[in-house]
């Protein structure tokens, strides 16, 4: 997994609550057996005016010129900001793969759906929950300032606004360490292998039916 330490990036606003993973990457693209290549179809139904199909050349498709990702001023954005309950719905990790593939490394919202939040950390994407007021303020500042950038420092848990003002964010220690170092979580878990074997031996005594097959 990619490590994440700091980022100074352009911010693209998606002014909606309950942005669901169906919207982030529509189902027809889930037929892929790969992890990459989803970026061109990120937010496909909002971004294009026609119906997207997998394995299609997206360069000639009619685009929705009002959608934020299509506005020249947000081109190259690495930070995405949205409203409450971002990433709700389906557990599809393809949503995070699509964001990452497009170039988004940080998502800011007042709240996230649990499974999406979890999936971010497995892919080097940092989800940051800020208060609704702070999010509202950033939305306003983006509106007023072309080229609006935020600075994110994971180790310090800081988001720095262009004004130099610093907002602190919360993150669980384990996830923070994994992300900072880009650790292989499966490898880490296998360090507990002996404890797992002991647990299994004990459970086979207590609840043998769980091991019948």
């Amino acid at each position: 997994m990619d490590a994440f330490t700091t980022l100074n990036g352009l911010v693209v606003p998606i002014d909606r609550a309950n942005v669901d993973t169906d919207a982030i990457i529509p189902k027809q693209f889930l037929k892929s057996v790969k992890r990459s290549g989803f970026g061109p179809n990120l937010f496909d139904e909002w971004r294009y005016l026609d119906v997207g199909e997998p394995d299609q050349d997206n360069s000639g498709r009619p685009v929705n010129s009002e959608f934020a990702l299509n506005l020249p001023r947000f081109s190259g954005a690495q930070i995405l900001i949205a409203r409450d309950n971002f990433g709700c719905g389906s557990s599809r990790e393809h949503a995070v793969w699509a964001l990452h593939d497009y170039g988004i490394r940080v998502v800011i919202a007042p709240s996230f759906a649990d499974i999406f939040y979890n999936n971010c950390f497995k892919n080097g994407v940092l989800p940051i929950a800020l208060s609704a007021d702070e999010v509202e303020r950033i939305f306003k500042e983006i509106d007023a300032n072309e080229g609006y950038q935020l600075q994110v420092d994971l180790a310090a848990q800081h988001v720095t606004l262009p004004s130099g003002e610093v907002i602190l964010f919360e993150i669980d220690n384990f996830r923070k360490e994994c992300l900072l170092q880009g650790l292989d979580e499966i490898g880490l878990s296998l360090q507990h292998a002996d404890a797992v074997r002991d647990y299994e031996a004990k459970r086979k005594q207590e609840a043998p039916w769980l091991f019948a097959s």
Binding site: R35, S90, R92, N118, K122
Partner: peptide
């Protein structure tokens, strides 16, 4: 799959996971 919550109807602890976690459970049972 997010609708894994269904199985809780039987008094089980059940929940949906992402693909990285699918791999994690396959490899470690945890």
């Amino acid at each position: 799959d997010s609708h894994t919550s269904t199985h809780g109807a039987l008094g089980a602890l059940s929940f949906g996971i992402g693909t990285s976690e699918v791999e994690h459970v396959l490899a470690t049972q945890c």
